[in-house]
Write a protein that binds this DNA or RNA. Sequence first.
DNA 1: TGCGAACCGTACCGTACGGTACTGATCGGG
DNA 2: CCCGATCAGTACCGTACGGTACGGTTCGCA
Lengths: 213, 213
Amino acid sequence: MTAAIREADAGEGLTERQGAVLEQALRLLVDGGEKALTTAGIARAANCSKESLYKWFGDRDGLISAMIGFQASKVRTQDVAARALDAESLRGNLVTFAKDLLEVLAGDVSLALNRLAIGQASRDGSKLGHMLQERGRRQIGRRAAALLEAGRKAGLLSFDDADEAYGALYGLVVSDWHLKMLLGEEAGEMKKGFSRKAEQAVSAFLSLYGTKR
Amino acid sequence: MTAAIREADAGEGLTERQGAVLEQALRLLVDGGEKALTTAGIARAANCSKESLYKWFGDRDGLISAMIGFQASKVRTQDVAARALDAESLRGNLVTFAKDLLEVLAGDVSLALNRLAIGQASRDGSKLGHMLQERGRRQIGRRAAALLEAGRKAGLLSFDDADEAYGALYGLVVSDWHLKMLLGEEAGEMKKGFSRKAEQAVSAFLSLYGTKR
DNA sequence: TGCGAACCGTACCGTACGGTACTGATCGGG
DNA sequence: CCCGATCAGTACCGTACGGTACGGTTCGCA
């Protein structure tokens, strides 16, 4: 048995030491943007050597990929599979989902990683973009899909294409807020309006796809 | 009278030579991303000297700002103030607007500039972000606002908050397509679905805010 | 106690970028 | 015909980054 297997891991087949290093790297990225994410800076912040960074992650891109995977592994979305779905609880679940979605998108780590992936979309063949899409959005998308499907099963929602319905829900909730935050709009001021925004969006969504009169 | 006034300009108080340089710079940015946007590269592509670049635009940031302003000045949105607005023409105008919006957002220059501004959002205090927001989105937003207001005046639409209604329209039309394209999803394949997407979004919007039974 | 692996800290190398300085050519006005 | 301004082309400088190499130290293990 290899020694590595016996060590505590951080959810991605990497040791906790490596996880701590990625944590510091994420902090650097959040605080200073991509420009601050230098190998020397990470090594200094994490009290490790550049040589170890290259041994563990290969090169800078591998390190960034590891950062995305590490962050995604921390934000496991627990879907509350609430049975006995009635109109009230469906609305409540949808509002909760909408708020969670806005909170996640407005999180500084999420914003920083999205900025990083978008900035490199031109040069790396959108490798990071696909990774973010797959490991971040896919998760929350599945949660929404399950919720919508449950609503349809309970006769509370009516739609043919689940993706189309989810797209409408996403658009009504997020609108152009995500882009505005990515462009640097202060996220702190906006968070206060999240609840109202989420409820409005869910109301609109239900009047589009709900069966209730 | 100054000599500069007598020269042909490119819409931003700069000479046509400078406009040609900015054109080449935009082309470099579109083709190779931010990494390809070097002063030496621009000078080579535009057959000018780096010294001229710095004389005209101050520094790299000034040049990027000029690029944004230059591009915005080219994409003037003509609002077809169609009088005699009935339900059919309102829908038609909304669909046209939705298609135009998707086309603009999917344009490679737009995507490249947005990627650039998002990538620098952390370091420059979102100066570029505000500029893009102000000179790009504000324009198309006003066109939509005028259309919505005309619809309300004609008794075809019903809403209290015009911004909220516009937000819903924007979200229904764009959903998360913009982000996916910014992250590198191939835009070519998506463009085929724009018409259908636009019509679906407008139908949903009308069933939310329309007065028609 | 001695061995070897892992690792920190740092020095180092090649490269590429932003920005400046200089030279020579072109061109319009007196 | 000459003067001054503008500009292309290039050489140059300081800096900072990605990636590598090396000496010294700790720690698990026999």
